[in-house]
Design a protein around this nucleic acid. Structure first.
Lengths: 130, 130
DNA sequence: CAGCATCCATTCAGATACTG
DNA sequence: CAGTATCTGAATGGATGCTG
């Protein structure tokens, strides 16, 4: 996206940013960064579960039964890589791993709230309405 | 996603929802709804352009030169379908069509702002930060 | 000018099967 | 328990070419 400098007046979603004239998707754009973290099916649900408290792999699987191991694994890696959550491994057998949001991850709360708010306000019960 | 009942005081589609049990992605979830609107490469950039003011097809192409006709066309259809923008066609030749955000579309401003804020706060200059 | 139709390369997610 | 490896079908999105 690379949103930036929408000028100054409006909120368009972009504060006054030094860089201007970004005319194509840019991974360094804050908006892109955030969307990249949330991208992918199941991602926000996984985050939601973790916002309730730390979980193990199995607990997440139980909370989201239709989510395959592979995708869950992918999501956890993606979120870990993004610094949104941390993995606590405990040695020994059987293995136990706890997943926990970092402060950065908890910071996604307001973001999800904003997404929720818009969706809730503009799509009450009926689908599309002019 | 299917984040539930934020109720009133609680966080996002986060935990604490009585009607829990939403255990898989649900198109009716407000969070899903919003992400569906913003989904796809170039989408937020197109919205950003329109937040600056109404545009014609060509103006958008010029503002985003690397965006192909097909994808621009797709995005405009997607956003129009979502009720986020309207198309004003002017009869005659040559054709002229103006695209303008609806109030609903302008409501995306705060959403983009939230996305921007998180990205800007958590990814200052360096890529990954603990 | 504004745009749709086609073709193709890439990405993604679900299913299945197998380890540390 | 907590994952990874592999495969496949579906969904992108970019390039190119044509029309109302």
């Amino acid at each position: 996206m690379a949103h930036q400098t929408v000028g100054h007046a409006v909120r368009p979603g972009l504060p006054d940013d030094p860089s201007a004239a970004v005319t194509e998707p840019d991974p360094a754009c804050p908006v892109e960064i955030t969307l990249a973290v949330l991208r992918g099916r199941w991602t926000t649900l996984v985050v939601r579960e973790l916002l309730r408290g730390e979980c193990t792999f199995t607990e997440l699987r139980e909370a989201l039964p239709a989510l395959s191991d592979k995708v869950l694994s992918d999501r956890l890696a993606q979120l870990t890589q993004a610094g949104v959550l941390i993995r606590h491994r405990r040695p020994g057998w059987p293995p136990r791993t706890r997943y926990q949001l970092t402060p950065k991850g908890r910071g996604l709360g307001p973001v999800l709230q904003a997404l929720w708010d818009w969706g809730a306000e503009h799509h009450p019960p009926s689908p599309e309405r002019p």
